[in-house]
């Protein structure tokens, strides 16, 4: 799996076009945040978030927990294939059951949402903090500090990240997998944000309004918080919004490979992995978590994309 680098996140400084009366030759720049696809994306993401937050209540209503086996739902004669159409969908099990174990897929999807969201959002938060911190440190102070931070970033980027994450995760003890995942993801994840923040901080520092603030005697801290950070906020929001789907994808990939979230905890990636031996007979088993994964990542990417276009067009979010 390739780690999708934010190659599509533009350097906002160079991409910002001044607003003018004459329209851009490329067509009208986007004016609204809430277009059709964006509304759909927000709706879907809200559903997923609600599932994540209210997982225990939801499964109370649906009747089955994510860890409970239901041997009556699977047919032992066929080796454990779920009874009923579409992988055992019934009024009892709204999304069907897992082959062999008979665990309720709906419940596992709901709890999987919880895990994915928790990890992705935590990792995003952590990488944003680290990325902004180191990026601004490097960009503001320059010199030796910048050299050190830049070298560290180069070093981390040279790592074959996926292999290393897998090796690292498989070597770590099996306690509190989510925390391990968040740590490992953040370890490598902060670099791309830091890089962009660094270069933008550097170019902002050269701008006149910073010079003016400096000349009027503002302290370094004041300049950072009042002049520079507000101008970075657009980029930060865009990168963070685009980081969330990336992390969801990476966590799912790692879980798929068996080094992320390990059973019995439910994770969409892990469910897809478990579905592989059954995929010819019970396609719903891979289709359901797969579609959820796909649509969640897609929705988050649509949002991030839209934000990016608006920022690059010169709007403030």
């Amino acid at each position: 799996m390739a780690m999708p680098t934010p190659a599509t996140v533009p350097d906002v400084e160079s991409g910002a076009a001044p607003l003018s009366a004459a329209p851009l030759a490329t067509g009208r720049s986007p004016r609204r945040l809430f277009t059709g696809p964006v509304i759909l994306s927000i709706a879907f993401l809200s559903v997923v978030l609600l599932m994540a937050v209210f997982a225990p209540f939801i499964t109370k209503i649906s009747g089955w927990g994510p860890y409970t086996f239901d041997p009556t739902a699977v047919d032992p004669a066929t080796g454990g294939i779920p009874i009923g159409p579409f992988g055992g969908i019934s009024s009892e099990h709204w999304f069907g059951v897992e082959p062999q174990s008979g665990r309720d897929i709906f419940a596992r999807i709901v709890y999987g949402a919880r895990v994915s969201m928790l990890i992705a959002l935590s990792a995003t938060l952590l990488t944003t903090l680290l990325g902004v911190l180191f990026g601004m440190l490097a960009g503001t102070f320059g010199g030796a500090l910048d050299q050190v931070i830049s070298r560290v970033m180069d070093f981390l980027m040279a790592f074959p990240t996926l292999i290393f994450m897998i090796a690292l995760l498989s070597a770590l003890p099996n306690i509190n997998r989510p925390l391990m995942l968040i740590t490992v993801l953040s370890l490598f994840g902060w670099v791309s944000m830091a890089r962009i923040i660094r270069s933008q901080t550097m170019s902002l520092n050269r701008r006149e309004f910073v010079e003016a603030a400096h000349a009027s005697g503002a302290s370094r801290a004041a300049i950072i918080f009042r002049e520079i950070l507000p101008n970075l906020s657009g980029s930060i929001i865009v990168i963070a919004t685009l980081a969330v789907p990336t992390f969801i994808g990476v966590e799912a990939g790692l879980s798929f490979l068996g080094v992320g979230i390990t059973p019995p905890t439910a994770s969409w990636g892990q469910m897809i992995s478990a579905s592989v031996p059954w995929f010819t007979a019970v396609p719903s088993y891979f289709l359901i978590p797969g579609m959820f994964l796909f649509l969640t990542v897609l929705s988050a990417t649509v949002l991030g994309d839209r934000a990016q276009k608006l920022i690059a067009g010169g709007h403030r979010l």
Binding site: M1, P4, G249, A252, G269, I272, L287, G290, L293
Partner: peptide, 11 residues
């Protein structure tokens, strides 16, 4: 960009 490749492989 959003589609996980292992999912695509299965599909």
């Amino acid at each position: 960009v959003a589609l996980p490749n292992y999912f695509l492989a299965l599909v």
